[in-house]
């Protein structure tokens, strides 16, 4: 720390604010942060100047080590909003963190000028500065990470809801068009909602269409067979449709026994079987065209 044992960083920030801002903007341009057309020069200058003044205010308390203290709340809020908006604009976490890290060189330069005569104090001050800026930079990365995790969780939820549509095709006939990869968690949800719909609609035939399932491995096949077995225990027949040639080959190669299950190549064929099992007949009306 300085001669009286107190850090001079708050003073330096206050005294050289204008120069620091100019140097910092230059540094950001040099660091090659992707700006494209997302952030205009004036907007960036305004952001940096605001951040700098918040940073200066926060440091006046003398606390340079605990950025989660109340006096740092405005700085944290600003970094959060910058991280959020930049994440949405498609910035990488590196670019977002560089916003803070690029301030190191301007600040260090000023410290060096100030303490050129006193190496020990300079080392101390640089340590305090780097420690502070590292913490602020890491905060932006944490915010970025949190944003991503929230996004993934939200999308997963939406996917699960989207991916289990049980459709009533006809009185007593349900269809379950499966799309995408089947894992255990998803199969469980699919199975539950299907069986629940069977009870609600008293359906006697269910068509499981796997046209949209890219690959069938042993696990997927087992999940399918379990669904069929559970439906049968409740008194409902299952027909599996949409089996593509490669999938038929895989099923045989894997040694999965589908002989107890009615299978059809096309959803339409399965529907015809379902109708006839339910006692319906389809005929073309004659002489009308």
């Amino acid at each position: 720390m300085s001669l009286n044992g107190k850090t001079t960083i708050p003073e330096i920030l206050k005294k050289y604010q204008a120069e620091l801002l100019t140097d910092w903007l230059k540094e950001q341009a040099a660091a090659g942060i992707r700006r494209d057309n997302f952030i205009k020069e004036t907007e960036l200058r305004q952001q940096c100047s605001e951040f700098l003044s918040l940073l200066t205010n926060a440091t006046q308390s003398g606390n340079l080590s605990d950025i989660f203290a109340p006096e740092w709340s405005q700085v944290r809020e600003m970094l959060t909003s910058i991280s959020n908006s930049r994440t949405r604009q498609g910035f990488t976490p590196r670019d977002i963190a560089l916003f803070v890290f690029s301030f190191k060189r301007p600040l260090f330069d000023h410290l060096r000028k100030e303490f050129a005569h006193n190496g020990e104090v300079l080392a101390d001050e640089i340590w305090s500065a780097t420690d502070l800026l590292d913490k602020l930079g890491l905060l932006t990365t944490e915010i970025y990470q949190k944003n991503r995790e929230e996004l993934i969780a939200r999308q997963q939820e939406e996917m699960l809801e989207l991916s289990t549509p049980v459709v009533k095709l006809w009185e007593g006939i349900l269809a379950l068009p499966l799309i995408g990869t089947l894992d255990s968690a998803r199969t469980q949800i699919v199975m539950e909602s299907l069986l629940q719909m069977i009870v609600e609609t008293s359906s006697q035939v269910v068509i499981i269409d796997i046209t949209g399932v890219p690959t069938v491995d042993t696990l997927v096949a087992q999940h399918l067979l379990k669904t069929v077995a559970a439906a049968r225990l409740m008194g409902t027949d299952c027909i599996i449709s949409g089996i593509r040639p490669q999938i038929a080959q895989t099923i045989v190669h894997l040694g999965v026994d589908l002989s107890d299950v009615t299978t059809k190549a096309k959803l339409g064929d399965a529907f015809l079987v379902a109708l006839s099992r339910s006692g319906f007949k389809i005929s073309r009306s004659e002489g009308e065209f």
């Binding site: 069977i198 559970a230 225990l233 409740m234 008194g235 107890d260």
Partner: peptide
């Protein structure tokens, strides 16, 4: 048979192939 019971029986490894079933 209730859906939860049916799922559990299948997981247990008991699919009762010889028994005929109906919804109600």
């Amino acid at each position: 048979m209730q859906p939860a019971v049916a799922i559990t029986l299948v997981e247990l490894g008991l699919s009762l192939p010889k028994i005929r079933t109906a919804l109600n």
